[in-house]
Amino acid sequence: MGDLEFFDCNCSFGMRSILYPESFYKVEDLVKKMDRYGIKRALVYHSMAREYAPSVGNRMLMDEIKVYPFLIPLWTVMPHHTQEFPEPYRLIEQMKAYGVKAVTMFPGAMDHAYSMAEWNCGQLFEALEEHGIPLILGFDQTTWNELYDLLSNHPKLNLILTNVNYRMDRNIYVLFRMFENLFIETRGYQVYQGIEQICNRFGACRLIFGSGMPVYSGSAAVAMINYARISDKEKEMIAYRNLETLIGEVKL
């Protein structure tokens, strides 16, 4: 088969508090790296939305990606109760106006530090669910029980779990069985031959390519899929089709 044309569900750019050696932060460098690794499109959020304020970072994002049609905005959201962020109905209006079709959030204690429980985020999750908007959530931002509650309470909310790791089969398998709306990003899922196992047990439809650039290595992420012992069709599903399908289902 020819080179896979990856659609990345998890990229960012912008200045960060911690910048590791030989890493990068500018959008133009992200574009160069994507080209080097064969990543044709990406959902991107702005680091300022994570590390400073969603309202500020989301504005900077829209401004800086204007000239790159293959960079697709991924807004960072949070609950509205403090008025730091719009109410869900207003958020949806804004997303429609700007053509934003996916969101991420950082509720973890080291980031935006709020509870993901229903009493705090229920209205937000309901709005995302109603409009088919995928939520991209780092595993580092949550707990297994929170995930279970979120998926139980919102069975139509498509959840892409990113920043996963190689130690999660004993919990993720049962969640895959229970919830069809759960997907995982491939980057951190470094179980040996684990991609093949997931494809065999649950189908390639549950895996979505993501790199985590610029913090994490794009080359490591693409190699995992390029060398997978699965069919070309399954590789294409993971590389771009599954994400295309989820984005295509958004109703704004």
Partner: peptide, 13 residues
């Protein structure tokens, strides 16, 4: 313990 493909890819590319 880990899949070898990511660490392989980061050197090769």
């Amino acid at each position: 313990f880990l899949d070898p493909r990511p660490n392989f890819g980061r050197v090769a590319m």
